[in-house]
């Protein structure tokens, strides 16, 4: 008689790989934005790699769902874990989307705007990193979650401030860009900052699930 379906290790590994893929996608997001702004030739490689990690993340997410439901693992928390994993998926999606949009739409960014663009991408990536770390803590060591959640909220508010500064620079600065062009840049600012918004969304979900995971 087989009492347990010993798929636990497999699920654990899938979760780790999934989070690794998302983390890598977010790192490539920042590197990609940086390369785009510097007009670096590595940019297309970053776009490709980021899309590849996002694809891998989707694959791992599919496996996680299958193993969780097929073998009925962690039944009391499976719904929470799946929701958390699902909402994390947006980190990979948005990372890929920004780079693909940059590649396809090729927006012209003026030199004086680049540092702020770079900073937004950098802090957005940091927020994603902090929230992924928080998810790892949720899965392994509940005690340390709060520190990561605080970081995410802080980074998100920093990105909001930078976003506002950059918008002011675009619309009120010396730039002689056409209004349509300014709107286009505005759209990209929003896109880059979306990663921190997603991270905040994951953090909010995590802060609720943190209480539900108690014994």
């Amino acid at each position: 008689m087989r009492i347990f379906n010993n798929r636990n290790k497999e699920l654990e590994i899938e979760m780790e790989l999934y989070l690794d893929s998302l983390h890598n996608a977010s790192l490539l997001f920042y590197e990609g934005v940086k390369n785009y702004l510097d007009d670096d030739e590595k940019f297309p490689v970053r776009v490709y790699d980021c899309a590849e990690y996002e694809r891998q993340a989707d694959e791992h997410l599919k496996n996680i769902k299958f193993i969780l439901y097929r073998y009925n693992l962690v039944p009391d928390l499976s719904a929470d874990i799946l929701e958390l994993m699902d909402v994390c998926d947006d980190i990979g999606d948005i990372s890929k989307e920004v780079l693909l949009d940059l590649q396809a739409e090729n927006p012209k960014i003026e030199e004086d705007m680049k540092p702020l663009f770079r900073e937004i991408a950098k802090i957005s990536q940091k927020s994603a990193e902090a929230v992924i770390g928080g998810v790892r803590f949720y899965l392994t060591q509940m005690r340390s979650i709060d520190e990561n959640l605080n970081k995410v909220y802080f980074y998100e508010s920093e990105v909001d401030k930078l976003q506002h500064d950059l918008k002011k620079l675009i619309y009120q600065g010396d730039s002689e860009l056409e209004y349509a062009h300014k709107l286009h840049l505005s759209y990209f600012i929003k896109k880059c900052a979306a990663l921190s918004d997603i991270s905040e969304k994951v953090a909010l979900v995590l802060s609720v699930f943190q209480f539900k995971r108690g014994i």
Partner: peptide, 27 residues
């Protein structure tokens, strides 16, 4: 409860592994 809560708060264990141990413990 207090012993187990303190124990779980101070160890690093994956939620999936904990689930497996909990099943053994329940049996």
């Amino acid at each position: 409860y207090l012993i187990i809560r303190a124990f779980l708060a101070n160890i690093k264990i994956h939620v999936v592994t904990l689930d497996q141990y909990t099943r053994y413990a329940l049996v």
